[in-house]
């Protein structure tokens, strides 16, 4: 893949829809399935991923010419781990309230496939600016996926939304469990594919 020709805005939309990390790329499924049990959990993990992705993408884009080809992946992992640790330390020191809510999410991120993958296919071939916007797009795309899954699972599994009781009963407890996460991701993927097929068909007819 050569350097991107997309504009910044296209990069963001690309992360949100065309290449949505969860529904299109099917990456980082463990956290997506494990943690998207409520909207709040999904949102917090999304914010954490957004920051780490943007910082890591920019760093790699900045030093890409100095990375030895054979040790790309270890370098990426090292970069992500460094940023995760730094964010963890800074949050703990200066934003104790945010740290209390987000601490456990931040520490989970080191092993996320989506971040390593974006560094490998995008950041190491593009400028810092493009990588920044790609990071933003991917981060928001991940957040969007997590919040969507979280909303459905919270309402169906616990009968609440954002912690407020909306149904008054728990329709299907099953949806809180990880297995239901997989079903839901499957449904969402199918939906994304269906929309894409419709869109392509219409585009073809138009031409």
């Amino acid at each position: 893949m050569a350097a991107t020709t997309k504009t910044n805005m296209q990069l963001v939309v690309n992360g949100l829809l065309n290449e949505n990390p969860i529904f299109r790329l099917a990456l980082s499924m463990c956290p997506a399935v494990g943690i998207s049990t409520t909207v709040a959990n999904g949102l917090l993990l999304g914010v954490a991923v957004l920051f780490v992705q943007v910082f890591s993408s920019c760093t790699i884009a900045l030093i890409k010419d100095h990375i030895h080809q054979r040790i790309r992946i270890p370098t990426y992992t090292l970069t992500i781990a460094t940023w995760v640790t730094v964010i963890d330390l800074v949050l703990a020191a200066y934003l104790p309230v945010a740290y209390k809510a987000m601490g456990i999410f931040v520490r989970l991120i080191v092993a996320f496939a989506i971040i390593t993958m974006r560094l490998e296919v995008f950041a190491c071939r593009n400028t810092v600016t493009a990588s920044f916007w790609d990071g933003i797009g991917m981060g928001f795309g991940f957040m969007f996926g997590m919040v969507t899954l979280g909303a459905v699972r919270e309402v169906l599994g616990m009968g609440t939304l954002l912690g407020y009781d909306v149904l008054g009963f728990r329709p299907m407890l099953f949806f809180v469990l990880p297995a239901a996460g997989f079903f839901l991701v499957g449904f969402m993927m199918a939906m994304f594919n269906y929309v894409e097929t419709l869109y392509n068909r219409r585009a073809k007819r138009g031409s």
Binding site: I71, P74, T75, L78, T79, A81, T82, T85, V86, L89, V90, A92, A93, Y94, P96, Y99
Partner: peptide
């Protein structure tokens, strides 16, 4: 790379350790 990463983390730690302990 490891040394560099260690340096970044170490510096951050030095600057934040006190505030973290206080919190």
């Amino acid at each position: 790379s490891c040394l560099l990463a260690g340096l970044v983390i170490g510096t951050t730690f030095i600057f934040t350790a006190k505030a973290k302990q206080h919190n």
